[in-house]
Amino acid sequence: MSDDPGFWQRIFDFRDYGELLALVHNSLIAGAVLGVVGGLISAFVMMRDMPFAVHGISELSFAGASGFLLLGQSVVVGSLTGSIGAALLIGALGTRARDRNSIIGVLMPFGLGLGVLFLSLYKGRANNKFGLLTGQIAAVDTPHLAVLSAVSIIVVTGLLIVWRPLTFASTDPELAAARGVPVRLLSPVFMLLLGLTVAMSVQIVGALLVLSIVVTPAAAAMRVTSSPTLVPLLSVAFAVVAMVGGTLLELGSYVPISPYVTTISFVIYLVCRIVGALRAPPTSALGAVA
């Protein structure tokens, strides 16, 4: 790595930080809101073993956003259109894990290819193109924050309504179906909520790094507890720390927010993994042989 001071100033430059901090209250609120929503839905993503689906939806969200950008329309609407379309398609066609993964494997390169095509045809500002991939939280204005907040309320309300049956269906779908839980109906409902969350995340951290908000928090939480109450609470806390911390660090640099968010998320995961390993009871020699 270079020892040139200019290199480090591009990553951590806190000159005039106080003045800049007063200008990004929308970004901090957006980061906290996304942390809450991403942390909540992350628990179900892990319970339902759907990290791959998150990546697939993000690629179609990227394609929708870049297509609307090319047409001069709202990038937010384009991202929502792509995410919801992908989520509903995966939810409708992928009833089994193998089928779902096959569908996602087909959709991902298609969505990414479309997004690259649309961006290559776009002749506007390079920052708009780059931001769709790597995030641009500094660009959150009041209308954008209002949309983000409205979608967040929809997602959180939806999760609260279906929380108990969705938890049951996610942990033991066969028994849940036998008890009369509408397992098949819950799948597209959850996919719709997931699609909305991914669309919001793409606007903030970019299409390539959505997993750091919608997967990593719960993956970390599950390393230290198996409590159905503590997992979502810890997941939300981890996601909020990553988003708000990443926003504060990005403010004093010249690089996008995504490296900071992903690094904080990864460090939290490593710490939780170490803590979980230290707390795990030692396996006896007899148990190891068994």
Rank of each mutant, 00 (worst) to 15 (best):
I84W: 02
L270G: 01
F168E: 07
R15Q: 13
S170Y: 08
L34K: 02
F266E: 07
A63C: 00
T197H: 05
A30Q: 06
G195E: 02
E19K: 12
I264C: 09
G85D: 04
I213G: 01
R48E: 00
G158T: 02
S226D: 13
G276F: 09
R98D: 15
G252Q: 09
C272T: 08
H25W: 15
A43T: 15
G276M: 05
E19I: 06
A138Y: 11
V215M: 06
W163S: 03
P5E: 08
L132S: 01
T95K: 15
A221D: 06
L234P: 04
L80A: 08
L193I: 00
D16V: 05
A199N: 06
I137H: 11
S102M: 15
R279L: 14
V271H: 07
G113N: 10
S152Q: 07
A65V: 05
V210G: 02
A237M: 10
V156R: 05
G56P: 02
A176R: 03
V140W: 10
P165E: 02
V236H: 04
V202W: 03
S149A: 15
S61T: 12
H25D: 13
V183T: 07
I29S: 07
A277W: 14
A53N: 01
G72H: 04
L208K: 04
G195M: 07
G124L: 04
S83H: 03
P217Y: 11
E19V: 08
G158P: 01
H144V: 09
S79V: 00
Q9E: 14
P256C: 11
V76R: 12
M1S: 11
A86G: 04
G245M: 07
